[in-house]
């Protein structure tokens, strides 16, 4: 292509200089240690700060890639989408923008997968979709996951991230807490294993239902896990919360999780736990 200024004479030295725009990679600052991390660097390190080990939030697809055996994840009910059943103001827009932002059709993905060769049903919640809030579709997909696992005698491995019940679906969101708990109970009564990994943040109605109902409850380092959100507690007690309140480590101290599970060894930990419950010797 011919440059537009081919026959134009430069007025001065500066004008003639070729500007080479260097590609600057976007960076993120670690909230714990302030270290600058490039997006590629973070992605390669599974969204963990290479300096201090801070665990950033991670997309559902990335998690599947990290945890499940290569190409083993077969997604189910991928096209289920929420409706604005109660005609709640702004909900349609919120759904549209969440879809665009996350690239997902709802706040959880579910599928059958293998982890270290162990067949299981996996659910992974999506932080970019309304912070994984639970409406009827999330509740339905989680319920189906447990029902399917019970039918096929498979363990369930789940990753939670949630701001709680989805306000925009009103009472129907609340009912999902009972519905999912019922399905977890049936799966449990069939003698089947459910391992849950709590990730940042897991709060509200999800904490008060399937997040806390695992046979084995793991949590990622530093994850915020609680029923009431910290701001609500601070407003209620009119005091600042101490540092580290409601973190995964706090929950471990108080006896509510089995182990802290850093992302680096997470797949191996899950494989070991699944193997320890496997009937095949």
């Amino acid at each position: 292509m011919i440059p537009r200024n081919l026959f134009k004479k430069a007025n001065n030295e500066l004008e003639d200089r070729q500007v080479v725009e260097e590609f600057v990679e976007p960076t993120q600052t670690c909230p714990d240690c302030g270290f600058e991390l490039t997006t590629t660097e973070l992605k390669d390190n599974h969204e963990v700060c290479s300096k201090c080990g801070h665990h950033f939030r991670m997309n559902a697809r990335q998690r599947v890639e990290l945890i499940a055996d290569k190409d083993s994840f077969e997604e189910l009910w991928a096209d289920m989408e929420s409706q604005n059943i109660l005609d709640f103001p702004g909900y349609d827009d919120k759904l549209r923008s969440s879809k665009a932002k996350s690239g997902e059709s709802e706040g959880v993905i579910v599928g059958e997968a293998a982890i270290g060769g162990h067949r299981c049903v996996m659910f992974v919640m999506e932080p970019e979709f309304m912070i994984g809030s639970m409406g009827t579709v999330v509740g339905e997909k989680i319920t189906r996951a447990f029902e399917l696992a019970a039918e096929k005698s498979l363990p369930v491995v789940g990753f939670t991230v949630s701001g709680g019940a989805r306000m925009q679906e009103g009472i129907l969101s609340l009912m999902q807490m009972a519905k999912t708990s019922g399905a977890v109970k049936r799966h449990s009564d069939a003698g089947l294993l459910y391992i849950v990994v709590l990730t940042d943040p897991t709060t509200g109605g999800v904490t008060a239902s399937f997040a806390m109902e695992g046979d084995i409850i793991l949590a990622e380092p530093g994850a915020l896990v609680g029923f009431a959100g910290p701001r609500v507690i601070e407003q209620t007690i009119r005091k600042k919360l101490p540092k580290g309140f409601q973190t995964a480590e706090f929950l471990l101290d108080h006896g509510f999780v089995d182990a802290i599970s850093p992302r680096s060894g997470q797949r191996d930990l899950l494989i070991n736990l699944l193997a320890l419950h496997s009937k095949e010797v």
């Binding site: 904490t207 029923f227 507690i233």
Partner: peptide
């Protein structure tokens, strides 16, 4: 939504009832 409630597992207590 208090500190003691969180320390003693409010979410778990509700989940178990469900």
């Amino acid at each position: 939504p208090g500190m003691g409630a969180e320390e003693r597992g409010q979410g778990l207590a509700i989940a178990e009832n469900l």
